[in-house]
């Protein structure tokens, strides 16, 4: 059963990946990405990472993908990737390098990972991950929260429209006591 599930998710994930990379419309790429994310969520479940699987769906599929869609909509992007001279990176080179890369990585992966350990029923549960997060990894946890705050502030700061040149600052409130 597990093997079937894995085979299916693997095929779907690869298809989605190709979709991301090869689609002409950005929206199609987003859909491909979504496919990959969901397949991987299932794989996480197969590997006993329940909490992570749920997080994957919520954060990645639920927030990040939505964000991508919003931006595509906002920018009204057309992928008119016409030819460009001179070529910055010949596509052939890119494909070749990636193929070599894939080969090497798979070779590395295939060299075995050893016997799988046996795990208890509570492996990867919210309780277990939560316990680890709040004890052993408490400091990175706090740091992560700061990262998120910085991200928010950064996004807000970056999105402000700059004032037009020469516009006088708004001084309506001044002079009042």
């Amino acid at each position: 059963m597990e093997r079937v599930l894995f085979a299916v998710t693997a095929v779907l994930a690869l298809a989605g990946g190709v979709g991301v990379v090869a689609s002409r419309e950005p929206v199609h790429s987003v859909l491909g990405l979504l496919l990959v994310l969901m397949s991987l969520a299932v794989d996480f479940l197969l590997l006993g990472a329940q909490f992570i699987a749920v997080l994957q769906v919520i954060i990645y599929a639920g927030a990040i993908v939505v964000l991508f869609v919003f931006i595509i909509m906002l920018l009204n992007v057309r992928t008119g990737e016409g030819a460009r001279t001179p070529r910055v990176v010949p596509p052939a080179l890119g494909i070749a390098l990636s193929a070599v890369f894939a080969g090497l990585l798979v070779a590395a992966a295939a060299s075995g990972a050893g016997q799988a350990a046996s795990v208890g029923a509570d492996f990867g549960t919210v309780q277990q991950v939560g316990r680890a997060l709040f004890t052993a990894y408490a400091l990175p946890f706090e740091a992560a929260s700061i990262v998120l705050i910085v991200g928010m502030i950064g996004a807000v700061a970056l999105s402000k429209r700059p004032a037009p040149w020469g516009a006088p600052p708004d001084r309506r409130g001044e002079g009042r006591r």
Binding site: L14, V20, S98, A102
Partner: peptide, 10 residues
């Protein structure tokens, strides 16, 4: 590995 390589290609 395959997914990673695909991403690199992109």
């Amino acid at each position: 590995a395959a997914l990673f390589a695909l991403g690199t290609l992109g």
